[in-house]
Structures are given as C-alpha cells and as structure tokens.
C-alpha cells in the first residue's frame, strides 16, 4: 500500500463529516431502491428539489418571514420583561422579595403545558403564539441576569466606591458590565427556546408560517415538505446561535477566551 493512500485513509477515518454523508447516501440509496417508501420519508434529492421549488415560488420565504416575525416579537417581549425583572430583583431587596418567588413558582410549570390555557385566554389567533414564546423566553433571561448581578465580586464594588463612584455609576460601570456574560448565556437559551416554542405555538391553528406548512404537508403526506421545514428550523437555530456569538464577541471582547494573543 502506498504511503499517500495510507495517509488518506487515516485522514478519512478521523473526518467528522464522513458519517453524516454516509447516512445521507444510504438514505438516498434506500429511497431509490424503494426500501424507504416516499410517504415514509422522501429522498434527500427530492427534499432538495422541493426546497428549491418552494424557495423560487416564494412559498417558503413568505411563510418563513411570518414565523420569524412571531419568534422575533415574542422574543423581544420576553427578553424585555426578563431584563426588567432581572434588574429589579438583582438590584433591590424588595424587588427580589416580590419577584423571585413568583419566578421560581413559574419555573416548575412547563410552559408547553400552558398552551390550552393560553388558547382559552387569547383565542387561536396570533396572540397566544406570541404570548407563549414571550412567556417561555422570559425565564432564562431573568434567571441568568439575576444570578449574574448577584455573582458580581463585591470587592470590585468596594474598589469603585473607594474611587468615589456613586450608586448609579457603580451600576453602569461595574454591575451591568459584570452581569453581561450571564445575560448573554440567558439570551442564548432564550433564542433556542423561542425556536422550540415557535414549533409548538404554530401547531395552534396557524394559517401561515412554517408550522402551517408542516401541518398541511402532514395532511397530504408530503414528507418532502416536512423535511424541508425541519431543515429550516435547524437553520434558524444555527443562525440564532451565530448571531448571539457575534454580538458576544463584540460586547465581551475583554474576556480572555476572546482575546487573540
């Protein structure tokens, strides 16, 4: 065996992209030979075709925008409320006493289980969908910001006081920047939860959006469309994570793991 072939094989055996590609090839082969029926799972090539078709027809972009709008609005409301509650509980004792017990109670209830109640309260329009996303994303933001503020080194605050900073300056210069890494952790959780809740919320009588596409496809047993929508959900999750990382890299450039020597 030649040296270079040996090296190539060794290289391949350690490649992380290999197993997904093999699976994809097996899947395609299974579909072509009729081992996997179309109504069980469409072939990767069919999925790709459908993806291109739905994109050029505008069906996918339009529904994706609807879903993105829901997620963004719900997330914005949830993050805003979470930040306000986290700041209030983190920076004042009465605030903590008022807010934290409620949040801990809320934590024990899975938000998904609230769906029926939200439908009773808000009907089956846009409101319950956005409310579900907002309600679910609020908690990780609150919890991380609150514990981030409480985790600030009291010695830094002492130092700031010794240099004559007043309470407001200490909050702006010491407490908030110090709690920022924790807030970003919460934000990252909130983003992935918002995608998750989007999937669940869009099962409620949606007339547009990715969930609507999936439900329709289910009724017509179009597994290719279902897989396309799953791909889009996955891409959304990845994009959301990349977005937070980008913002984090800029905002937390002082942290050693971001500093390139």
């Amino acid at each position: 065996m030649s040296q270079s072939l040996h090296r190539t094989l060794k290289h391949l055996s350690q490649a992380h992209w290999l197993s997904p590609v093999v699976l994809l090839l097996l899947w395609e082969a299974g579909s072509r030979t009729g081992l996997i029926p179309e109504r069980t799972l469409a072939a990767p090539s069919t999925v790709l075709e459908t993806l291109v078709g739905m994109t050029t027809s505008g069906e996918l972009p339009i529904n994706l925008l609807v879903s993105l709008g829901r997620a963004a609005l719900g997330l914005a409301i949830g993050v805003a409320i979470g930040v306000v509650l986290g700041l209030t509980a983190g920076l004042s004792r009465p605030g903590e006493a008022a807010i934290d017990p409620l949040m801990q109670i809320k934590r024990t209830i899975p938000v998904v289980a609230l769906t029926p109640l939200f439908i009773v309260w808000f009907g089956i329009g846009e409101t319950p969908k956005i409310a579900l996303i907002a309600f679910a994303t609020l908690f990780p933001v609150y919890l991380n910001l609150y514990s981030g503020i409480r985790g600030i080194d009291v010695r830094l605050i002492d130092a700031a006081r010794s240099f004559g900073l007043n309470r407001w300056q200490i909050i702006v210069d010491v407490v908030l920047p110090g709690a920022l890494p924790a807030l970003f952790t919460g934000l990252r959780y909130a983003l992935s939860i918002s995608i998750l809740m989007l999937v669940i919320a869009e099962q409620i009588n949606a007339t547009a959006g990715l969930g609507y596409l999936i439900n329709n496809a289910r009724d017509y047993m179009r597994t290719d469309i279902i897989v396309v929508c799953l791909l889009v959900y996955a891409a959304l999750g990845l994009a959301a994570d990349a977005l937070v990382r980008l913002v984090e890299n800029r905002a937390l450039s002082w942290r050693p793991n971001f500093i390139t020597a």
């Binding site: 920076l91 004792r93 503020i149």
Partner: peptide
C-alpha cells in the same frame, strides 16, 4: 468570601 448583596451600601 461574601457575595454581593444589594442591601450592602454601594
């Protein structure tokens, strides 16, 4: 070590 508490003066 004493962690930060908002009831401390700051």
């Amino acid at each position: 070590n004493i962690p930060f508490s908002p009831s401390d003066p700051f």
